[in-house]
């Protein structure tokens, strides 16, 4: 759902040409612009929201109701909410279709959004995934240092050694403060021997 919203990117390239359908800027600036006139952002979002609404609606049918319960039961509100969500999905879909028809730039959210920097986004997302995989195996300090360094790299830090060092100091301080003074439990992992030696836990 995140990728390639042609409408969004066309509308705002360097101030954005008003006639977005034909107004393609210099290609190297935004290579991922896709020119299919059959799909746009609101259409995609509408489909996504509708899918979510369907999930919750079908899920509501599966909620068991006890026969002794005569008043409105545990299904009622889920039906209400999923119907509301579905209506929003249809609204977005309609908006998307209308924009397709008129060929105009989207009415909302056309505020100058530059094309997505996919390298930075993927690296940041990967950093969080690594953290989840590492935390309970390698411990908080190691996982946090990796998280910090990868995110710093994603945001353009050039001196990787410095980023790792700052990340380690920050993670170590946070671990020490939270476990020793604030009474939280955090996995020590591979740092356990050192932490024990320092008198921590």
């Amino acid at each position: 759902m995140t990728h390639a919203d042609p409408m969004m990117q066309q509308g705002n390239v360097n101030g954005g040409p008003a006639h977005a359908q034909t107004g393609r800027g210099p290609a190297p600036l935004h290579p991922q612009v896709r020119h299919g006139a059959w799909l746009n952002r609101d259409l995609l979002l509408g489909l996504g929201v509708l899918g979510l609404a369907a999930f919750f609606f079908i899920g509501a049918l599966r909620i068991r109701i006890s026969p002794s319960y005569s008043h409105i039961g545990p299904r009622f509100f889920p039906f209400l909410v999923s119907t509301g969500l579905g209506a929003c999905g249809i609204g977005l879909l309609a908006q998307g279709l209308r924009q397709l028809k008129s060929g105009a730039a989207p009415a909302e959210g056309e505020a100058a959004e530059p094309p997505i920097n996919w390298v930075s986004v993927s690296l940041t997302a990967a950093a969080v995934v690594f953290y989840i995989l590492l935390l309970e195996r390698a411990g908080f300090i190691a996982a946090s240092t990796v998280l910090f360094s990868l995110v710093a790299a994603a945001f353009g830090a050039r001196r990787y050694g410095l980023a790792v060092l700052i990340g380690f100091i920050l993670s170590f301080t946070a671990y020490w403060a939270f476990t020793q003074w604030l009474g939280l439990r955090l996995p020590a992992g591979i740092m356990r021997p050192i932490l024990l030696w320092l008198g921590g836990s």
Binding site: T124, A127, V128, Y131, I132, L135, E136, F140, A143, S144, L147, F148, S149, V151, A152, A153, A154, F155, G156, A157, A163, I166, G167, L170, S171, A174, F178, L184, R185, L186
Partner: peptide, 27 residues
């Protein structure tokens, strides 16, 4: 600098989340 700012934000975000229930499902 933005690299350290966002690095720090995510470290604390993950820490705050994990310390709720100590569960990777939360993460």
């Amino acid at each position: 600098p933005a690299p350290y700012l966002y690095g720090g934000i995510l470290v604390f975000a993950a820490l705050g989340t994990y310390s709720l229930n100590h569960s990777w499902v939360d993460l």
